[in-house]
C-alpha cells in the first residue's frame, strides 16, 4: 500500500505544545516538507524566535539556534555570512519580527541577506497571553487593548510585506494563509520558493502567513478561521508583493 501521508523527515518525532486550532503546526509541517523535498536538511540551520514558536528548535530536525527576541535576522546574517553554502531560515512571529525586531528585519531585507524568513502574523502576542501586537487590527480587543485597539493612541497595524516590498534587497515578499486546503497549497509553494530563492543566491525572501490564534482570540478553532477570513484578509490582502524572479523566469 502506498504511503500518502507521513511525518516529514525534517520534523522530529515530538508532540508539539501548540494549542488546538493554532496554525503553527501546519506551517512547521510546510517548512519541513520544503526542506525534505529540496533535500537540504543537512545544511540547513533554522532560527527559532521568542514567542509561541520558541520551542521550534526542538521540533525541526535540522540544526537550530534559539534567538533573543527579535534578533533572528541578525543571527541569520552571522550564520549565513560564515557559511554561504548553508540554508538559513528564521521563523518569527509578529511581535518578534515587526515590533522588537523590526530594525533587524528591515536591515536584513535591505542588505538582501540571502535568507528565508517565515513570518507568522496572528495579530496578537501569543506566548505572553494575548497582548496587542504591531499587527493587531483596529478595534481588536486584546489584553492590552481591552477597549479595542484605538488607532488614535496606538496607531495602525503594520503591513510587513507591503513595506518590505519597497526594498531592493527583497527577492520575494508574499502573504499567504493556511485557513483552507487551497491556501495551504499556495502557502506550501510559496515557502518552497522562498527556500529555492536562497539556494539560488537571490537574496531575502519573506513569506508572511496569516495564522489563527483561537486561544488568545477567545474563539473556537473553527470560529477563529472565520474571524481570520472576515477580518485579517481585508486588512492584509493575500498575494505576492514583490517577486524579482517570477516563475517561468526560471531558477538557476
Amino acid at each position: 500500500m502506498a504511503i500518502v501521508y507521513r511525518r516529514p523527515k525534517a520534523l522530529n518525532e515530538l508532540e508539539m505544545h501548540y494549542c488546538p486550532g493554532c496554525n503553527h503546526g501546519i506551517v512547521h509541517r510546510l517548512v519541513a516538507e520544503a526542506i525534505d523535498e529540496l533535500d537540504i536538511e543537512g545544511r540547513t540551520i533554522g532560527i527559532a524566535p521568542v514567542g509561541c514558536a520558541v520551542k521550534a528548535y526542538d521540533y525541526f530536525a535540522c540544526d537550530m539556534v534559539e534567538a533573543a527576541h527579535g534578533r533572528a535576522p541578525a543571527i541569520a546574517t552571522g550564520l549565513k555570512r560564515t557559511m554561504p553554502d548553508s540554508v538559513v531560515f528564521t521563523y518569527q512571529g509578529d511581535g518578534d519580527l515587526a515590533a522588537i525586531g523590526m530594525c533587524e528585519t528591515v536591515h536584513a531585507a535591505a542588505r538582501g541577506e540571502n535568507i528565508t524568513v517565515i513570518f507568522i502574523n496572528n495579530a496578537i502576542y501569543g506566548m505572553t497571553g494575548g497582548q496587542m501586537a504591531p499587527t493587531t487590527l483596529p478595534n481588536q480587543i486584546t489584553q492590552t487593548s481591552p477597549y479595542g485597539r484605538d488607532t488614535k493612541t496606538t496607531g495602525f497595524p503594520i503591513r510587513v510585506c507591503e513595506m518590505l516590498s519597497t526594498l531592493e534587497g527583497v527577492a520575494l515578499a508574499q502573504r499567504v494563509a493556511v485557513d483552507s486546503v487551497k491556501n495551504v497549497r499556495i502557502a506550501k509553494k510559496a515557502i518552497k520558493r522562498a527556500f529555492e530563492n536562497q539556494i539560488n543566491g537571490r537574496g531575502y525572501s519573506i513569506i508572511e502567513i496569516l495564522s489563527a490564534c483561537p486561544t488568545n482570540w477567545g474563539l473556537s478553532p473553527r470560529e477563529a478561521l472565520v474571524w481570520l477570513r472576515e477580518n485579517m484578509l481585508k486588512y492584509y490582502p493575500l498575494g505576492i508583493y514583490k517577486d524579482k524572479y517570477p516563475e517561468g523566469g526560471e531558477s538557476k
Binding site: I45, I47, V65, A67, A68, R71, P73, A74, I75, A76, T77, G78, L79, K80, R81, T82, M83, S86, C103, E104, V106, H107
Partner: peptide, 26 residues
C-alpha cells in the same frame, strides 16, 4: 574574511552570536 557594518550594536552582537554558533572565531 567578512566585515559587516551592522545596523546597531544589538544586531552586531547577534551577528556574532550567529557566527559563533556556526563555530567560527569572530
Amino acid at each position: 574574511g567578512t566585515f559587516l557594518q551592522a545596523e546597531s550594536e544589538i544586531s552586531a552582537i547577534n551577528m556574532i552570536y550567529g557566527a559563533s554558533s556556526a563555530g567560527f572565531r569572530c
